[in-house]
């Protein structure tokens, strides 16, 4: 009995109906076959977001695939940022042995790997990954250290808050663990980038409730999307209203 994952799941979630894995599998078949059509149909249906009537928004979908596509969107944004900064004067001016160069190289590697992982994982689900998003980094000055590190800090902190806020919407244990494997790396990034900006600011009160329970200030997908969309071009802004 203890080797039956179905039994374990029910023990943790008494209210779930039986035969969840079969339902989940059929959901993936449905999602994979119709994700494109669903995105078209749903993109105009959300009524709690000012931009939701824009048919050009990218709907991440619903269920576990919706969360995976949401994560894929954020990783696309982060990877694009760390790729773009490599062409800027700030990065190019760093000496090969500097801490900043090594850190920004590692973050570029990690975020591109995350992006490619999600694309593969969603395809394997099987489902359809959202399209390649076009970023809009016009507010970032890639020649300026403070602008680049400030943006890096914003992206890493946003990523941590996003994963923490979306974990509760995941229904497959494996996906929750994978999200956990990534979010702690994002948190390690965030702490170090924050320290580069201001030494010792790794858990300050804008991201952690240090005055009370000292927990991360997680953010709902709708809140994260509002910030993420300021860095995404028209036609690439994300609609996350299906995640609930």
């Amino acid at each position: 009995m203890s080797k039956n994952p179905q039994a374990i799941k029910e023990e943790a979630e008494f209210t779930k109906p039986l035969l969840v894995p079969i339902k989940r599998r059929s959901f993936f078949m449905y999602a994979g076959a119709t994700a494109g059509a669903t995105a078209l149909l749903l993109s105009g249906c959300d009524d709690d977001d000012n931009n939701s009537s824009d048919p050009a928004m990218v709907n991440v979908g619903s269920g576990d695939v919706g969360v995976l596509n949401y994560a894929y969107a954020l990783e696309q944004l982060e990877a694009a940022f760390y790729t773009k900064l490599r062409d800027g004067a700030y990065y190019k001016g760093l000496t090969a042995t500097s801490a900043e160069k090594q850190i920004l190289d590692d973050l570029y590697y990690h975020e591109v790997i995350h992006r490619e992982f999600f694309k593969a994982a969603i395809t394997a689900a099987p489902a359809t990954p959202i399209k390649d998003l076009t970023p809009d980094f016009s507010t970032i000055n890639f020649d300026n250290k403070a602008s680049v590190l400030g943006a890096a800090k914003a992206f890493e902190d946003l990523g941590v808050a996003a994963y923490n806020g979306a974990g509760k919407y995941i229904t497959t244990p494996l996906y929750l663990v994978i999200a956990g494997k990534i979010v702690s790396v994002e948190a390690r990034h965030a702490a170090l980038i924050r320290d580069l900006v201001t030494e010792g600011s790794f858990v300050d009160s804008d991201v952690v409730t240090i005055a009370t329970s000292s927990i991360e200030i997680s953010k709902e997908p709708s809140v994260v999307a509002m910030t993420a969309n300021t860095y995404l071009a028209a036609g690439s802004k994300i609609d996350v209203s299906g995640i609930k």
Partner: peptide
Amino acid sequence: ETALNIHSVEARHASR
């Protein structure tokens, strides 16, 4: 969510 919010703070500590 609370557990996840402690988890990432532990990761921030480890990083520092």
